[in-house]
Computed example of a mutant assay.
Amino acid sequence: MREEIGQSQFLIVICSPDSAKSEWVEMEVSHFLTLRGHEFVIPVIIKGTPYAKDAVDECLPLSLLRTEVDLLGISFAGQSKEQVLLKTVSALLDIKYDSLYDRHRRRQRRQRMVAATVATVMFVIVLTAALFSIMQWNRAEQRRAEAEQLLNYLLLDLHPKLQQFGRLDILESVAEQSREYIDYISTDVRDPIDAIQAISLRRNMAEVYQSVGKLENAETLHLKNISVLKKLEQIDPKVGIIHLLKGEEHQALASIRKTEGRFQDALHETPMKEKLK
């Protein structure tokens, strides 16, 4: 204990009538005062009164009572634990209490802002979990339409908002969980509406992957779309929307491959009239 006290810059004394009568507390305080001055002692009063007229109420150890300077101490009376802690820290760091209190309040405000942001992120995650719960347990047409609408919102409308806060990782997680469902609704190309809806969702997913730099994942999704569109083309070659969508998928692939520096591959995806230009 003497070694520990000798290595300490400050001594925080928890003061009460009981500690004032303690032989061990008196020995520790007395030893510290022989090494350092009273200005390095911080009395924290939890009960009793310093310099009390009645010895029964006295809370300061005898060594502190004998010092020539009055030690008012930090009292719990009428104060919260937070205030007592801040006053103790202000004494340790030699910082004005008001200044430290202002810092503490600013820190609390920042913490509340962070908590609000976390709550928003958690809301999105819970929303996503609810979405996939709907997909898993209820395949009714109306429910599926609602799920697809919500998925489009998450992957498309929410995209710029989360990008602003640097939280595209949330959308990436949504995209990862969406892939199995989208593949499920597009397995039967005999239903063109389902297949085209899946192509739209898959394209939104590819845009998310491209935003976070996962170009290989984005390329895989565009290739899947092209494969589905080719099957649809074989069923009905005269549907103009299929040729339009296929052209858009090839353009998206060309853009990705240019970004990767694969200019020859990008040229391969470019329509002939664009090459001539």
Rank of each mutant, 00 (worst) to 15 (best):
E39V: 03
R66H: 04
F165C: 04
K273Q: 13
S227C: 00
S22N: 12
I74Y: 01
F263I: 13
E260Y: 02
S8E: 05
A116S: 12
K273V: 15
Q234R: 12
S99G: 01
V228S: 08
D102C: 00
L253C: 08
N225D: 14
E141Q: 11
L151W: 07
H159S: 11
L154I: 07
D57A: 13
G73H: 01
S22L: 04
I170N: 03
L72Q: 10
D70S: 10
E146T: 09
M135S: 06
C15R: 00
G213A: 06
L127G: 15
C15S: 03
K277Y: 05
D183W: 06
Q163T: 06
M113A: 07
A140V: 03
I242K: 03
A130W: 08
F263R: 05
I42P: 02
E233I: 00
F40W: 07
L151G: 10
L229V: 03
R2E: 15
V29A: 04
V121P: 00
E4R: 11
L11D: 05
S255P: 00
H31Y: 15
I12V: 15
F263V: 13
S19K: 01
S80I: 11
E176I: 12
Y184S: 14
A129W: 06
G261P: 08
V89N: 04
F132N: 08
L60H: 11
K161D: 13
R144W: 00
A129C: 10
V121T: 11
M272A: 13
K96R: 13
A147W: 00
V126D: 15
K214S: 14
D94N: 15
E219I: 12
A252D: 04
D57N: 15
A145L: 09
M113T: 06
A254K: 06
C15E: 02
V13Y: 03
A52N: 07
A147H: 02
T49D: 05
L171A: 06
S30P: 00
R143S: 15
D70C: 02
E248H: 12
M113W: 01
W24R: 11
T259L: 13
L253V: 06
V84H: 06
G6H: 02
I125L: 09
R112G: 00
S99M: 11
F32C: 08
R110S: 10
V174F: 02
Y209L: 08
A252F: 04
G6R: 01
S22A: 11
K275N: 01
T120H: 10
G166H: 10
K273H: 14
K81Y: 13
